[in-house]
């Protein structure tokens, strides 16, 4: 998977899981999924499931309870590491 496709796809999945309207410039590394993008504990779980399914990856338990999914930057980095892409 090409780097550009990866991020495009990740942003698409994030957009599909929130009711907040998100522009490309809203996707900064320190963008908080809950505070800035309107995710709650329920939609976060669905987001994780959709990311895992689409990219055919699996988050570890330790990753699920860490800050990896709290910010867009952390999430992006974690997903890219799992699909063996440099970001």
């Amino acid at each position: 998977m090409e780097r550009n496709d990866f991020e495009v796809d990740l942003k698409k999945i994030i957009r599909e899981n929130t009711y907040v309207s998100i522009n490309d410039e809203d996707f900064k590394d320190n963008t908080d999924l809950i505070v800035d993008l309107g995710f709650d504990s329920l939609s976060i779980v669905k987001l994780i499931a959709d990311i895992e399914k689409y990219f055919k990856i699996e988050f570890e338990i330790n990753e699920l309870v860490s800050e990896v999914i709290a910010s867009y930057g952390n999430l992006k980095k974690c997903v890219s590491n799992k699909i063996n892409k440099e970001v």
């Binding site: 504990s41 329920l42 779980v45 994780i48 699920l64």
Partner: peptide, 22 residues
């Protein structure tokens, strides 16, 4: 918002360990 953040790990664990969908 902090309350939601603190509930997040629990929901992800429920989902992963026990198959509980929100």
């Amino acid at each position: 918002k902090d309350d939601i953040k603190s509930l997040m790990p629990l929901w992800t664990l429920r989902s992963r360990l026990y198959g509980i969908d929100p």
